[in-house]
Design a protein around this nucleic acid. Structure first.
Lengths: 326, 326
DNA sequence: TTGAAAGCGATACCAG
DNA sequence: CTGGTATCGCTTTCAA
């Protein structure tokens, strides 16, 4: 690879002049052409490491999330990445999956990689751990989809409580009285909020809390699949179920089909995130759709503002999910 | 951030000694402890840019693909990334979407970023352009899912032709005679191969080629959706349709539902990639499932071997897709 | 405007 | 084994 030195030599000017040219400084007109052609001839490209070493910034953003094979996150990340790129940043994506040690490791890793900022979907980190991790190198972080209680950063969230409340009310209005919920671990922010929405709706309809109707586990297909089985075994099984993420919904639908239970005739269902699937069932199943793209775009905008020096108080935005096929 | 200099000073040794300690060299036992505690006290972490500048390698891999919100690519990338990471590499993911200028731009960008190797799902680059792009900085590239004709790199592909051939034969065996295909642009490697599989099956069953049964467009929902409409308007519409990717399949199913056409009773369908959806339809629709994880893992393995200095002739592997719900 | 020179932080050679 | 030093490629003073 050609270096700036080669360009300087070939153009017959000094290194500094080339550097100035490269960085938009003023260069005597008669020097312009030689520099330009030298760059072209040598196909010169600045070494990014040398540049970052000097500049102390990488123009890269860390993105840390559980899983990007899930359409929700995949779509969100694409939107995020597009905006960041338009502004000269590129992203380093890390997925910690369900392995909890990884979340902390990757957080460390991204920091050590020299990212200028971070978009973070937290799952298992405490406020204290977060602070400890970020103490060394304070960079702007935007929390997305979930927020660690007690950590004050920009956050782009969704109105989980309300949307589930509305969804459950819909089921109750249709006459259901035994409505179950299959949801993620209580430690996960979104799972907790969605559970609250469910509980509040049940309570508003004067239905007593029934522990056997609340099934929580990992945010996986298996949780939905086995959860459905367990609910069906109850002496008094539910007549409707609400799921709180993509994989759980798929698990439930699959389990129902395998048992020959027809949705929504025999068991009513409110799905989450998997609009493609729910909309294609006959009849279409109601499902919560989150504004993935808007989430990504907003997170990008917030982060870019911070990178631009914005010092406003941390903002916490709630975007609206909507009910499809209600 | 603390530098190696700070550590050296605090530990009372020279910079070189610290460096040696860091890189697994031999250090006098009594120096070990001071160095260790200095590192801990200062929370020292090597500056990645300085390190890369010196080492002339970044330990990062570029991943260039059309779209990672698609489950096929999302899953593939997750598997790929996991393996790479286990071997000390991290990945830089770029999606060029449907915007063709981007493919070349991002290729350039990834190269300029200093990646040590690349995993590449090509779409619009010619062999010549590819060679031109890679000429400057020769790094190992593994082509995945698709391969540019005339470019000799490792490639991990799928048996597109055979699987579609088998799928179409299945439809023909069930008595269908008018089988249509909705597929991607002929310029896309996989679309072309899948089309060949279709044509060959039709020809093997002595069915004359009918241009109106072959609909090709972008690999999008819209193509499937409108393609279905067009096919239905034919004076003599098909009785079965084969789709050749995720979005197209979704588009077709949606269009069918909106028109109240029942699958597979009225129109038989062979889907592609969207196993979640097809398996949950009643009855389940046959669908081609690709070994996403294996593709990712194999690509990673190939690349790691090259990074390790392997100079064998380029390998081209065909993994087997399979028919689900046949 | 230009160019010499001092770093940025880490590695590796080589003499001690 | 240790530590001084040159070097990686680039940016940025600072004099001229």
């Amino acid at each position: 690879m050609a270096t700036i030195k080669d360009v300087a030599r070939m153009a017959g000017v000094s290194i500094s002049t080339v550097s100035k040219y490269l960085n938009g400084g003023n260069v005597r007109p008669e020097n312009l052409e030689p520099i330009r052609s030298a760059i072209a001839a040598l196909d010169y490209r600045a070494n990014p490491f040398a540049r970052c070493l000097k500049a102390q910034r990488s123009r890269s953003i860390g993105i840390l999330l559980p899983n990007m094979a899930a359409p929700f996150f995949g779509t969100m990340v694409m939107a995020l990445d597009t905006i960041l790129r338009e502004h000269g940043y590129h992203s380093m994506i890390c997925c910690y999956g369900s392995s909890h040690g990884l979340e902390r490791d990757y957080f460390r890793f991204l920091l050590s990689t020299g990212v200028d900022g971070m978009v973070y979907v937290p799952e298992d980190l405490s406020a204290e751990e977060f602070r400890e991790l970020t103490a060394q190198r304070p960079i702007p972080v935007v929390q997305v989809d979930r927020a660690i209680q007690g950590v004050e950063t920009d956050a782009v969230l969704v109105n989980n409580m309300e949307i589930v409340y509305n969804g459950v009310c819909g089921l109750l209005d249709r006459g259901h009285r035994r409505v179950a919920i299959i949801t993620g671990p209580k430690s996960v922010f979104t799972a907790k909020e969605r559970l609250v929405g469910y509980l509040r709706a049940m309570s508003d309809y004067d239905l007593p809390y029934d522990d056997s109707l609340v099934h929580s586990g990992e945010l996986t297909f298996a949780t939905g699949y086995t959860g459905f089985g367990l609910l069906m075994q109850l002496p008094n099984p539910p007549t409707a179920i609400i799921c709180t993420n993509y994989d759980i919904t798929l698990g439930v639908i699959t389990a129902a089909q395998e048992r020959g239970i027809r949705l929504p005739e025999q068991i009513d269902l409110l799905g989450f995130d998997c609009v493609e699937v729910c909309s294609l069932m006959t009849p279409a199943l109601p499902v919560v759709q989150q504004p993935e793209q808007e989430i990504g775009r907003t997170a990008a905008a917030y982060l870019l503002q911070r990178l631009d020096g914005c010092q406003d108080a941390p903002r916490q935005l709630r975007l609206e999910a909507r009910l499809v096929n209600p």
